[in-house]
């Protein structure tokens, strides 16, 4: 079960103790003039509606169709993403790492929850929880098995522990059978997990 279930000991008709404490803190911060509630609303709304894995998927699809962009992305991902107007500006220190038949990349933050927010949105619960953070660096094949995927036994697995302000985006391999596809069609195949390295892109024609 996800660890948020620890907070589910309340009847939904009343506010939990934690909800009350969060409301109290927001009231104090607002009354003291530190934050505007409307500004908090806007941050939340952006993560709920604008910023998510579709941003990263656009970048991946572009790299699959445009060799010059792919080269620029692998060379300096922040700069390359900055040239894509429809994705928007991304912060500094983004690093794109390419999956190949010889090497599979996987990203973790063992110390906290560092994640490329601007490309993928907020991280899922499992990315921030102990099972993934403990095992990704020691038993990445076991972790991939938890996701229902496996790699050839000779494939190198490279785990990137996000211990600084660098942020990693996995560039997965383009699925076979997509020759001539448009960027948008390709972007629809790119999953969040394939950009973390715990999944593959969707297979053309498979039910989504």
């Amino acid at each position: 079960m996800t660890d948020h279930d620890h907070d589910h000991h309340h009847d939904h008709s009343e506010l939990s103790e934690l909800e009350l404490r969060v409301r109290a803190l927001e009231t104090v911060l607002t009354e003291k003039g530190y934050v505007e509630p409307a500004a908090l609303d806007a941050i939340i709304q952006a993560y709920e509606t604008k910023i998510g894995p579709h941003n990263g998927a656009q970048v991946v699809a572009k790299a699959w169709t445009d060799p010059a962009f792919k080269k620029a992305l692998l060379d300096d991902a922040s700069k390359a993403v900055g040239t894509l107007g429809h994705v928007g500006r991304t912060g500094d220190h983004l690093v794109a790492v390419e999956n190949t038949p010889q090497r599979h990349n996987m990203v973790v933050c063992t110390l906290c929850s560092c994640y490329p927010w601007e490309m993928l949105g907020l991280p899922p619960v499992w990315y921030k929880a102990a099972p993934y953070r403990t095992r990704a660096v020691k038993d990445p094949r076991g972790v991939l098995a938890d996701f229902g995927i496996s790699l050839p036994k000779e494939t190198e697995i490279r785990v990137w522990d996000s211990t600084a302000e660098t942020r990693f985006l996995v560039l997965p391999m383009r699925p076979a059978g997509t020759e001539g596809w448009s960027e948008q069609q390709l972007a629809d195949l790119v999953t969040r997990d394939s950009m973390i390295g715990t999944g593959f892109p969707k297979t053309p024609g498979a039910p989504s």
Binding site: T2, P124, T134, D146, F147
Partner: peptide, 16 residues
Amino acid sequence: VHDMGGMDGFGKVEPE
């Protein structure tokens, strides 16, 4: 305890 890399016993990763 935040420095978790390499610890055992936390079970499977369970994506939602």
